[in-house]
Amino acid sequence: MIAGLLGQRIGQSVVSENRGGAGGTLAAAAVATAPADGYTLLYGTPGQLTILPILMSNLPYDADRDFDPVSLVSRGAYAIAVHPSVQAHTLPELIELARATPSGLPYATAGIGSGPHLAAELLTFMAQIRMTHVPYRGSALALNDVVGGQVPVSFDNFGSQLPLVRAGQLRALAITTSTRSGLMPDLPTISDTLPGYEVSAFGFIAVRSGTPKPIVDRLNDEIQIVLRDPAVEAHATPMGAVPSGTSSEEARRILRGESVKWRQVIQHAGIRL
């Protein structure tokens, strides 16, 4: 959606190339080694520049040195949900269930070091409970096993879980953002139970570092206009996302703040790839 509208704005084709693998590091590496001319953009998530650099010592790029953020483009939430058979209908009840499970209440995520994994570790730290991480190779596999009853608890993107919640296959307990979602206004936030808890799933656009500032500024200006297009909001809302543009400086500040936050969580939880 962003690529198409941005292309209309700048009068050039903007091609979206999905380059998967290694938690998004292959895509980031492609941008880090591209010419610094503004023609190759990274649509990224926090893992590529704030989480994996903490977990991996052999990344093919330097997260601080090789990228200039252009703008955040969206914000969303993760959610904690359970299989309908689980005897917990609220987050406080789930916390008590975890305390009554000395072996650690299992929860599924899309993988070690993923955003949902770290969001869950922050929850266990703040609630002072023990839960057992069950990592999968992707969100679809994790959700399938929670729906099937093999794992009782799911931590995943809210938008991915929402259809399953509406179909009665999962029961949502809370979302990770500090404010409730308009898609389910009655669904509490984790901060309603644990004040100060806040985790956002966000997307951003960056370019290779050294890209001339006038080009970064032009891209930022056009992206802000694109994000205000009603079609973008209509496309993002069903997925639980909110278009959220920023200045390039604000995007950099947010990414650096996420690095500090997750370094503390990773060190406390002893997470290793």
Rank of each mutant, 00 (worst) to 15 (best):
D66W: 07
L170H: 05
L118E: 07
P102N: 14
T90H: 09
S74H: 14
A167N: 04
N157P: 08
V199P: 02
A110P: 04
S209R: 03
D221F: 06
V265S: 00
M56F: 14
F204N: 07
P46H: 13
V15Y: 02
R137T: 13
L97N: 01
L173P: 04
T193A: 10
D66E: 00
A27F: 08
E121F: 10
G111W: 06
P84Q: 13
A88P: 11
R9K: 15
I80K: 05
G240H: 00
L91M: 11
E258T: 02
E198L: 15
R208E: 10
R65W: 07
A27L: 00
P152K: 03
G20H: 10
G138F: 03
G21A: 02
P84D: 13
G21T: 01
M239D: 13
F155G: 05
P185C: 02
I54D: 08
A98V: 01
I205W: 08
L105R: 04
H268Y: 07
T237G: 07
E258P: 05
A88C: 07
P152F: 00
G104V: 04
S244R: 10
A32C: 14
L187S: 12
L227C: 13
A3Y: 02
R130P: 08
T25R: 09
T109R: 06
Y43G: 08
P195V: 06
V86I: 15
A234L: 05
A3L: 01
A231Y: 04
S16C: 13
A81V: 02
A63Q: 13
T45V: 11
L52I: 07
R208G: 10
L162V: 05
T101F: 03
V82M: 13
I80C: 14
R263A: 14
L105P: 04
L49A: 06
A119E: 13
A269I: 09
A29I: 03
I80G: 08
L164R: 09
V232Q: 04
L41I: 11
G240F: 06
T109I: 08
D156I: 06
A234G: 12
N18E: 12
D186H: 15
A174C: 08
R137F: 14
R252F: 00
L59V: 04
I175K: 01
R208Q: 11
A174E: 09
E93H: 03
I205M: 04
Y136T: 03
T124V: 12
T189G: 00
V265L: 02
S139K: 11
A206V: 03
R166I: 01
D229G: 05
I266V: 14
T246S: 11
G76M: 06
